[in-house]
Amino acid sequence: MIALDHVTKRYGTTAALDDVSLTLGDVGVTALLGPNGAGKSTLFSVVGRLIQADAGTVTIDGRDVAETPSSDLARTLAVLRQDNHIAARLTVHDLVEFGRFPHSKGRLTVEDREHIERALDYLDLGPLRDRFLDELSGGQRQRAFVAMILAQDTRYVLLDEPLNNLDLRHMTEIMRLIRRLADELGKTVIVVLHDINFAARYADRIVALRDGRVVADHDVSGFMRPEVLADIYDSPVEVHQIDGKPVALYYE
């Protein structure tokens, strides 16, 4: 379990996270929604020890993030930020290999190599393994990053807007993959999304943030209600049942 206990993080006078208490990681896929500036990325940064909270504690499986050695956490929790810009010319295989760093410290064992191969296979990256990252399309590159996170072999996987800059086909592909990570590999995935319908289709639980606070926290059917959605986004949202699944219409 990832537990945030009264966590606050301020940038200047604005609170990106305002006294947030939240438990994550009870179900396979949790989607984090909310308008821009709601504090989603900040929450990931605090949980992933990339930044320090001003107040409150974050524990992962009972261990305080601030006091646990970073190299131990790297075997429990993997965070993939949005907009990953890598200047170095690395091949897909190189990148996935670095995912084993928390385990291997650079000396790859037979087991490490198996993890790397499995991750490459799982994401269909076999034919691209010797390609340099800057020779890939956006969707392929995103898959390579996910493969790296997969090779890291952590229980918790945090993905910050993994659908950014992807076309429709690749968005669906990545979401299906996230579902498989949870269902087939038993991982606990927490993912920041912008699209309500993607969240409703693929997540088990949806948490909405706004102005640094948790404003809604439901399972899918509880979340996909007009009054809940209108409250989060400050604009009317209709919900229709299409083929027995709730779909939000927010284009009006």
């Binding site: 990339l50 190299s71 930020r81 670095f98 760093f101 650079g106 890291q152």
Partner: peptide, 21 residues
């Protein structure tokens, strides 16, 4: 320390995620 420098080359966030000091 070659691997550590490779990881550093991915940026501070990547390096932290991989447990590197």
């Amino acid at each position: 320390a070659a691997d550590r420098f490779s990881v550093i080359g991915l940026g501070e966030e990547f390096a932290t995620n991989l447990g590197l000091n």
